[in-house]
Amino acid sequence: MRDKPSILIAILMLSALIAAISISLLIGSANIPLSELFSDKFRSILILRLSRMILAATAGASLAVVGAILQGLLKNPLADPYVLGVSSGSGLGAVIAIVLGLRVASFVGLSLPLFAFIGGLITILFVYFLSKKAGRVGVEDILLSGVIVTAMLSGIIMFLVSVAETEGLHSALWWLLGSTQIFDIRLLILVSTISLLGILTSILLARNLNIMSLGEEEAITAGLNVERIKLIFFIIASLLTAAVVSACGMIGFVGLIIPHVARKLIGPDHRRLIPASALIGALFLIICDIAARRIAQPMELPVGVITAIIGGPFFIILLKKARRLRI
């Protein structure tokens, strides 16, 4: 029944994505005429824009997919990639690196993301073991542990940022607000590989999320090994979130809102929902990134500011609507 419109929607989405990609390559904070953009003189700028666009697409797709996974897995439409506490852990790792001026020799450009990634993974392990009781991981326990750990770590981040010197403060703040600026091509390759693998695995396993979203007891009586499914998706969600947060900082609202938009368009079946979320998430963040570069020219805004400004009102509408018709 839903097949025909979903093909149409897929085509529309893909065309919109291609359009957004082209625009993001043509527009930047520097005004370069189209005729010269592809000349050797501006090659480095073109590469910069290209890598930035790829990072925005990767981050948007990953965050949206993780949002879709967690909303289904935790049976909670308000779940987003940050409920697990990964982001605050990555944030703490990054802020420690910035404030203390830590550098890993021969990985100068990569040391911040590295600290962020490690911080994120340590946190998720902590949250996981915190919510494990008698061999089972309770869905409510994950949410609760995630919220508690996030609150604790955010406090420590605030403390470190407020005692930091001015120079460190600015870069830490900038990072916390989320940005798609990329300085090291190796980081881009690493993050986009992790994301691509994670998204493809999620699509392969997506059918299991359908029955998980009916509730854990339904899934068990239908013969699903729910602890294994939870663990697999927990790992995918943590890796994707930690990778994206280490490269881009905390870009909010994408992971919360995009799955709802996708569900409105193509229905709740995760086998279509996850690819659709990836597509729409990538599209959304590329557009937000273009806006971040253009709105306050010649200054550039952190893209997290744009997603929050667009996302906030959207979220309010969503909540209002959710009261009338369940989403």
Partner: peptide, 10 residues
């Protein structure tokens, strides 16, 4: 089971 309360409109 005792009724189903799906959060998504399957």
């Amino acid at each position: 089971g005792q009724g189903l309360k799906p959060i998504f409109s399957f």
